[in-house]
Design a protein around this nucleic acid. Sequence first.
DNA 1: AATATTGTTCAGCA
DNA 2: GTGCTGAACAATAT
Length: 255
Amino acid sequence: LDATALHQQIDDIEVHSERIVAENPGDHLAQALRHRRFERTRRHGKYLFAGLDSGEWLVLHFGMTGNLQYFKDMAQEPEYDQFLIHFGNGYQLAYNAPRKLGEIALADSVAAFRQEKDLGPDALDPDLDPEAFRQMLEGRRGMIKSALMNQQILAGIGNVYSDETLFQVGIHPRTRVKSLSGERMLKIYETMHSVLETAIDRRARPEQFPDSYLVPHRTPDGNCPLCGEPLKRVKVSGRSAYYCPNRQGDEPTGA
DNA sequence: AATATTGTTCAGCA
DNA sequence: GTGCTGAACAATAT
């Protein structure tokens, strides 16, 4: 969005999915966007914020499969275009999402939206130092993978990167937070940072990740890239957690 | 044809 | 009240 759609006048919008663009009484989203321009972007956790020259913010969540596409001819419109912006320069920006699991909304400010959704600090927030991270998890009774994925505690980590972090640290996903030492927590924090930075660097494409990572092998018949052991899969908080029974233990320690 | 998949929300339990 | 888990949701691939 930064590279393409900033500072262009918005002529009109098209809402194709009422599911994704909820909270749109009287088409007030069109009223808020028409004849405005995006001036800046921010990110918090899994949300993208596009700041308008009116001071309001368009908020986008991409669910599992959503992405943005900028193009000129409508012949290039993506197949699952759920929300479309027409700019004055003749280009369009489409919110494309084969599975309609995302969300598009308006917010007065990033802080207000954060409060509304009760989102914790962004996982890469510089103010979230190791000590703050440890304190946020202190006293929790649940499993470490669930805690990492809990957006109220920490915003930005989902199923795949929580698995990757725990794989690299050698901790079983069902391990209780309580049972982890301060030293282990510090290691989790450092690894989480490194995993996210790698993911951003590789544009979140699994095939571009280092082969030593879990991500490229994370399938039901995948093997551990470090020891060759067949990966195991268990449910944690309703999600499939993949792990290496050899390097992360065959069952949680201190569960 | 049935199952797995993703994040969020919400019901319900401890 | 709080923390936590699991079901439900949509749409697609396998």
